[in-house]
Amino acid sequence: MGAYEIILILALLLILFGVSRWSRFGKGFKRGMEEFINATGEVTKEMQDAMGSEDPSKKDRRDGPSNGAVANFVLWVAQGFGSGRIPWAPGTFGSLVGLVWFAALLAGGSYWLYLIGCAVGIVASVQLCGAAEKILDETDPPSVVLDEIIAIPICFLGWVSFIYFKTGFLPEPQYFFSRQTWLITVAVYVLFRLFDIAKPWPVKQSQSLPGGWGVTIDDVLAAVYVNLVVLAAHALYIAQHHRG
C-alpha cells in the first residue's frame, strides 16, 4: 500500500471520527496498556514468589493478587487490548482492531489457517467475553469488544474464499487496502457496524444465548449478513458485466 492510499485512509478516518474522538481513543488505549502492564507485573511477581519459599503465609498472599492479575488480563483482552475503554463507540474502535487481526490471519499465507483462526477467535471470544461478564457483573458490557474484533475476519470470509478458490492463493493483506479495493474494505467495515447496531433477525435474538455465546454469536451473525451483501453485490456486478 503506497503513501497515497495511507494518507487517504487516514484522512477518511479523521473525517469520520473527528480529532477529539481520536484523542479519546489514545487516552483509552493508554489506560488499557497501563492496566495490562500492571496485570503482567503482578503475574510475574506471583510466578517469582511461587518459585521461592513455600511458606504458608506467602502462599496465602499469592492467592488474592494472582486472581486479580488474571482478571485484569482477561479484561484487557476482552476489552480489545484497551480499545473497549474508549467512552465513545467502543465497538467501532474495537472493530478497527479487528482489521489488524484480519491482516494477521492473511499474513499466515494459508487459507486453512485463516479458517482455523476464525474458529479459534469465536471460541476465545465466547470464553473470555463470558468471563468478562462475570468479572464486571454485567450482561454484554459495552467495553467488551473482543467479539467485534474476531468477527471482522469473518466479514471478509466470502471475499477471501472467492479469491482463494479462483486463484489458489490467499490474498496478501495489502490487497485489501490497495487503490482498487480499499473502498470495498471500508464498505465491509461499515456494513458490519450497521448490522451489529441494527441487529436484524436473528442477530438480536442470539443475544439471549447464555454467557459469552450471547456476546459473540450476534457479531458472527452480523458478519454473515455482511458476506451475503458482498456476495450479492458481486453477483450483480458480474451480471451487469456480462450484459454489457
Results as ranks from 00 to 15, higher is better:
residue 1 M to A: 10
residue 2 G to K: 11
residue 4 Y to I: 15
residue 6 I to A: 13
residue 6 I to F: 14
residue 9 I to W: 10
residue 11 A to D: 14
residue 12 L to K: 15
residue 12 L to S: 15
residue 12 L to Q: 15
residue 13 L to V: 04
residue 15 I to F: 10
residue 17 F to P: 06
residue 19 V to S: 13
residue 21 R to K: 12
residue 21 R to Q: 13
residue 22 W to M: 09
residue 25 F to S: 03
residue 28 G to V: 08
residue 32 G to Y: 04
residue 32 G to K: 10
residue 33 M to W: 12
residue 34 E to Q: 11
residue 36 F to N: 05
residue 36 F to K: 12
residue 37 I to V: 12
residue 38 N to H: 15
residue 40 T to E: 10
residue 40 T to L: 08
residue 43 V to Y: 03
residue 47 M to K: 00
residue 47 M to D: 08
residue 53 S to P: 10
residue 57 S to K: 13
residue 61 R to I: 14
residue 61 R to D: 13
residue 65 P to Q: 11
residue 68 G to P: 12
residue 69 A to W: 00
residue 70 V to F: 11
residue 83 S to Q: 06
residue 83 S to M: 04
residue 85 R to G: 12
residue 87 P to Y: 04
residue 89 A to H: 02
residue 92 T to E: 03
residue 92 T to K: 03
residue 92 T to N: 01
residue 97 V to C: 02
residue 100 V to G: 12
residue 103 A to I: 10
residue 103 A to E: 05
residue 107 A to L: 13
residue 107 A to C: 11
residue 112 W to V: 05
residue 112 W to D: 09
residue 113 L to K: 15
residue 118 C to Q: 10
residue 119 A to Q: 07
residue 123 V to I: 15
residue 124 A to N: 15
residue 125 S to D: 08
residue 127 Q to K: 14
residue 128 L to I: 15
residue 134 K to R: 13
residue 135 I to T: 00
residue 138 E to N: 13
residue 138 E to A: 11
residue 143 S to I: 06
residue 150 I to K: 08
residue 154 I to M: 07
residue 156 F to T: 07
residue 159 W to H: 11
residue 159 W to N: 00
residue 159 W to C: 00
residue 162 F to Q: 13
residue 163 I to C: 14
residue 163 I to Y: 14
residue 165 F to T: 08
residue 167 T to V: 09
residue 170 L to A: 01
residue 173 P to N: 03
residue 175 Y to H: 02
residue 184 I to K: 04
residue 184 I to C: 08
residue 186 V to H: 08
residue 187 A to H: 11
residue 189 Y to G: 06
residue 192 F to Y: 01
residue 193 R to H: 00
residue 193 R to F: 08
residue 194 L to S: 11
residue 196 D to S: 10
residue 199 K to W: 01
residue 201 W to V: 05
residue 202 P to A: 05
residue 206 S to I: 04
residue 208 S to E: 00
residue 210 P to F: 02
residue 211 G to K: 09
residue 211 G to R: 08
residue 211 G to S: 12
residue 212 G to V: 05
residue 212 G to D: 00
residue 213 W to S: 09
residue 217 I to F: 03
residue 217 I to A: 04
residue 219 D to V: 02
residue 219 D to F: 00
residue 220 V to L: 05
residue 220 V to N: 02
residue 222 A to H: 03
residue 223 A to W: 02
residue 223 A to L: 06
residue 224 V to S: 06
residue 226 V to M: 00
residue 226 V to I: 09
residue 226 V to E: 05
residue 227 N to I: 01
residue 229 V to M: 02
residue 230 V to I: 07
residue 231 L to Y: 07
residue 234 H to S: 11
residue 237 Y to H: 12
residue 239 A to T: 01
residue 239 A to N: 09
residue 239 A to W: 06
residue 243 R to Q: 10
